[in-house]
Write a protein that binds this DNA or RNA. Structure first.
Lengths: 360, 360
DNA sequence: CTGAAAGCGCTAACAA
DNA sequence: TTGTTAGCGCTTTCAG
């Protein structure tokens, strides 16, 4: 039984009158601030409950905090990001903070619009996931509002970072494939030209990790990188190119699971089987990698922990605005599934997956 | 070259002084409000540009609007929702409005927390996608802030709705399967007990549409519904049950693509092939349904249009708070792919897909 | 420990 | 058409 139309919102003034105290007192109770006796707190709490009062965050922001954390995800379609988000929301569960997401931002322009919108709405802190903006812009943002940058390497004195070790992840995968007996291991990367991004973006580091690992295994001669994009289409095109090689690779390390999907499609079209004729691996261990009909070998990034750490750092920075910046680097793990196996003509061994039939 | 730390934000007062006008004048220009001469507008605009002023949405909200639209998505993992979101953001592209998303809300409690948070942050309007809260609660929300409910059937005088015709979608799919020659067509539904939800939630209407279509085709005897949940696990369990039937169905209509994934897994485990031994279809035409190795027959809901309509209605309601409520119902389309074909022992026909090999 | 009063940045009445 | 003046709901000095 709601009133026909809310005539007026319950305000701090109503609570103060009801509890027969000052608005200051109510404010203090709301913020658990120093300077209110237990009796006063109890009184105020009762009044709050009786009136069903909720503080108006929009107004709080004008003087203090809005208790809102803004999270910018570059692409809501990427099934890896929800994991990060869970890590974020779980840690914020029992706090007064609320998370709001900026919608899919592709490119610097959209990214700027969203971050500005968040700043203009008085958010107390920002988590930027894999932003593409130049570092100078990130530092500007961080100078205005506490900021944690996730999934982008490179330090900054003004913002904290949480990353997963992409070089190590690539090495895990290359090691896995080499352990199965593969030598001709190709990689499909997301094309990158901007020098800062080459140094800081995960995709570039995966490619670098691939190269390092290949060299470390004495397979420097076999290094074979195709530059497309982290999309299904990019994987399809990259695989087409690799399949056209005079001597085609026996394994493909796609820089992301979605890329691997395109590879699987191209391989099937070519009448080849996975992993019989060719092993395929992805990165991110997204939800569909685990789907029965796909069962893609991938690298897991512990998204939940990434999100958890990001919020932890953010809350710390909100509390202490100019503490030295922190970099957290987490370690990925390998998730072998059925798309990787020893190369054709090589006997099975302990590390191999179960064979699967041609997919088409 | 940013200043080391923003000393103070540029405010409307700064702009007014710079332009040598009153703050009211600036405010009017910002809102394109009546009562400012072209010269004044030009002067103010220049000052705004020169100072790089951006209005502080948090403060605007205290008196007027925040120019923020809140969108609540029940599950960010469901790949269907980004389509709706695109429809929303595209239409808002050239307006002053900004979209902010509430993160994954499972269950009424989380849903309430998110909607309250949005209201408390002064959002101008809400789009609730497939909310599970009781209708009374939705109406309460709508009485406080302009609201459009998406993906939930049932009218209300206080909020507008946008739905896709789930009954028709189910009929499309059943018709497709029957056209291929299937008679034993089973359905896996999301279990629902709450009476309101049985009447209003899409999952319940899909099951109802399935029943109606079966009856309409003279297949009432063959109606076979398994109640699990709209998850991969639910699909897996449902399929296990169906495969254990004395005479197992030749086709399974899963209530959602993710359910179909579980079905595919169970079918493969049983050593059966899709669609050779059994046809499988999903609903939502999510991104992974189109993935090469899956290629799932599904029903497309035109998510973009859903989002587009939702925002259109919302903006209209923000403008005119108490206009009569509107219900928009869109029509789904069938997307046949390779997981559906004529039942075993029946000759191929024009509508059949290409056969695929057993998946395991 | 408590409360009165000022003011955050903006918009909306109202007066000029 | 313009500017002046009150607030919006809350937090924050700063007296008591």
């Amino acid at each position: 039984m709601e009133p026909p139309a809310s005539p007026r919102r319950v305000t701090i003034v109503d609570v103060a009158q009801h509890a027969r105290v000052s608005t200051t007192a109510v404010s203090k109770v709301l913020r658990n601030a120093y300077g209110a006796s237990p009796e006063m707190r109890a009184k105020v709490r009762r009044a709050i409950d009786e009136l069903g009062y909720r503080p108006y965050a929009a107004a709080r922001g004008l003087r203090g905090q809005t208790y809102t954390i803004g999270v910018m995800l570059p692409d809501i379609r990427n099934p890896f990001f929800p994991e990060i988000l869970d890590g974020i929301t779980d840690r914020l569960q029992d706090t007064d903070y609320q998370v709001l997401l900026g919608p899919g931002c592709n490119g610097e322009k959209e990214e700027a619009r969203v971050t500005e919108a968040m700043i203009d709405r008085g958010m107390d802190g920002l988590v930027l996931v894999a932003p593409v903006s130049p570092r100078s812009h990130l530092e500007h943002i961080a100078s205005v509002v506490p900021t944690v940058v996730v999934g982008r390497h490179g330090h900054s004195p003004v913002y904290d970072t949480v990353t997963d070790d992409d070089v190590a992840g690539a090495a895990l995968l290359v090691g896995h494939l080499a352990g199965l007996g593969h030598r001709r291991i190709a990689h499909i990367e997301h094309h990158e030209t901007d020098p800062t991004r080459i140094a800081e973006m995960p995709n570039a580091l995966r490619a670098e990790g691939y190269r390092q690992a290949m060299r470390g295994l004495g397979l420097a001669q076999e290094i074979d990188v195709v530059s497309t994009s982290y999309t299904q289409q990019g994987g399809y095109e990259g695989a087409k190119e690799l399949l056209g090689r005079p001597s085609r690779p026996t394994a493909v390390f796609a820089g992301a699971d979605i890329v691997a999907m395109g590879v699987l499609e191209a391989v099937a079209e070519a009448g080849l089987s996975v992993p019989g004729d060719m092993s395929v691996a992805g990165y991110d261990n997204t939800a569909f990698a685990a789907l029965g009909p796909i069962s893609l070998t991938s690298v897991d990034q512990a998204g939940h922990e990434i999100g958890d750490n990001a919020v932890r750092l953010l809350l710390e920075r909100i509390t202490e605005r100019r503490k030295p910046s922190v970099q957290v680097k987490l370690s990925p793990t390998l998730v072998p599934r059925r798309t990787t196996a020893p190369p054709p003509g090589q006997s099975d061994n302990a590390e191999s997956g179960r064979g699967v039939q041609p997919l088409d």
